[in-house]
Amino acid sequence: MTWIATRLRRLAPQLIALALVVVAITLIAPGFAHVTFQNGRLYGSPMDVLVRAAPVALLSIGMTLVIATKGIDLSVGATIAITGAVAASMVAAGHPLAVVILAALGVGLLCGVWNGLLVGLIDIQPIIATLILMVAGRGIAQLITEGVILTFNRPAFAFLGSGAFLGVPMPVILWVLTGLAIGLLVRVSALGLLIEAVGINRRASMMIGIRARFLIVFVYAAAGLCAAIAGLIVTADIKGADANNAGLWLELDAILAVVIGGTALSGGRFSISASLIGALIIQALNTGILISGWPPEFNLIIKAVVIIVILALQSPVVANSLAAAARVRADLKEPRRSRT
């Protein structure tokens, strides 16, 4: 019981922000919250939010762990492109589905381990280390696709992107399961605590006997794996791999989701579920803007303004001044004795 209460208190700012965004969109586009069951699946704008949030949600899972170690991973968007290209080319070549999925996940893992070794072993600053793959990754993906949008027609693979299981779209199932799996892995084991310790004070953690290097490789590997799953979904969704555009700039949305989720870029305490809610907030905004009917020139401005407001409300400075304002109002109602 107390555990649930603690969790809710941690997630409250994000849940409230999500609720406010949803309410605002519903006011603008009344049909927004409408969900029906048709064609054997749940259907409606809320489902669109959940489905379209999948890539950023998946990236934000790995990104949360990376940021908890005081790192950052700019390469995950490019990893989506690489794994998507690998998957599409293998599907087009007729390999069995299981082989395709394992190969894509393996490639994503490899990308993550590469980043992890650069950061953990060679001690390159994370932003620089992952920039390498961010820039080179799209080139690698283009080499695999030979510069074209590599399309295929394999319903079993497309199912990952547009299919549904028990009425729930597959992308939703995949990101929720991945979030649960990694969340449970780090919280049921001691990984989460050790990652937080490394993020807060790597030197002290090292002196305690925590294997910081291993943990750093682990978090980047997890980020790569999450990107690979996202790559599979994105590729299956459009039945093709678009090396130029797949996952483009999504690393930034993922970082934003983590920040909205209240995990500090300076490392330490993290919450995967809060990051996932952050991803939903971002996607709710995107879908809300699409459905609002406003001209596209406003898209980015609206998104930026709403996010600034959400982040500002979370900042301790604003929280304190709001509290102070509340005190002033109380003072005005009931004047206190003057102080010396």
Binding site: G31, D48, L290, I291
Partner: peptide
């Protein structure tokens, strides 16, 4: 100009 975004936008239009 991308497939992914084209699909996402169309999904929203259909609902709207």
């Amino acid at each position: 100009f991308t497939r992914t975004k084209g699909k996402e936008v169309m999904e929203s239009f259909i609902k709207a």
